[in-house]
């Protein structure tokens, strides 16, 4: 099942104003993987998780224009999470009614525990992950390959600074500079994304 690309283009086609289109693309590129990951972590298999993602995004596109930040449900993020959770639970229920669906014991687990408090944490964790990933793709071209590699190797892969310095023929000081510059920029980009989380009213109207 490969619903996502088509969903994507039909969702993208909803926005007529190219300026707002960008905001919508950015929104989707954060929330699409986010919903997918949450669904996966709730125990759904790849195909089901894709279905949930598609389903949620389509609902989302229908509801977003009228959604108002003051409508009581709190932030868009929180509301989104609720939609995503309810949808995936419904889907799981449906699947469990037909025996040909997944007989995974996780399904029952999810069904029995669908209002766990750690759902919120899970969602927030996945949200942060998505912000970091999106931000890092966004800032990637501001750095040379070498600088970027220094950051990945030291900060993500956990290699020692001296190994990386030696491997890339750089001084220890230059390695510290490179990894710190990338993190400082990443932090800034994540904070920006976090603040612009909610689409502005006009963008919502045009979706």
């Amino acid at each position: 099942m490969s619903g996502t690309p088509e969903t994507r283009s039909s969702l993208l086609a909803r926005v007529r104003n190219p300026r707002n289109g960008e905001a919508w693309v950015e929104f989707l590129s954060i929330y699409e993987p986010l919903i997918y990951r949450v669904a996966r972590r709730k125990g759904l298999q790849d195909a089901d998780a894709r279905e949930v993602t598609q389903d949620v995004l389509v609902t989302l596109a229908d509801v977003i224009p009228s959604w108002k930040p003051t409508s009581g449900s709190g932030s868009l993020r929180r509301w989104l999470f609720q939609v995503a959770r309810n949808r995936s639970i419904n889907l799981l229920k449906e699947k469990s009614r037909h025996p040909c669906g997944t007989g995974d014991s996780k399904v029952r687990y999810v069904l029995e525990n669908h209002s766990q408090p750690d759902d919120v944490e899970l969602f927030i964790e996945e949200y942060r992950r998505q912000l970091f990933r999106h931000a890092s793709v966004k800032i990637r071209n501001e750095f040379s390959n070498k600088t970027w590699l220094v950051f990945l190797r030291t900060s993500i892969d956990g290699h020692s600074v001296s190994d990386v310095a030696h491997g890339l023929d750089m001084s220890i000081g230059a390695v510290y500079t490179a990894r710190s510059r990338v993190l400082a920029r990443l932090k800034m980009a994540v904070e920006e994304l976090d603040q612009q989380d909610v689409l502005d009213a006009q963008t919502r109207e045009e979706i």
Partner: peptide
């Protein structure tokens, strides 16, 4: 390293990326 970002930022970067 601290000027670039607090400890949590380094940890989150490492975990999420």
């Amino acid at each position: 390293l601290a000027l670039a970002g607090e400890r949590e930022w380094w940890e989150e970067a490492s975990r999420f990326l």
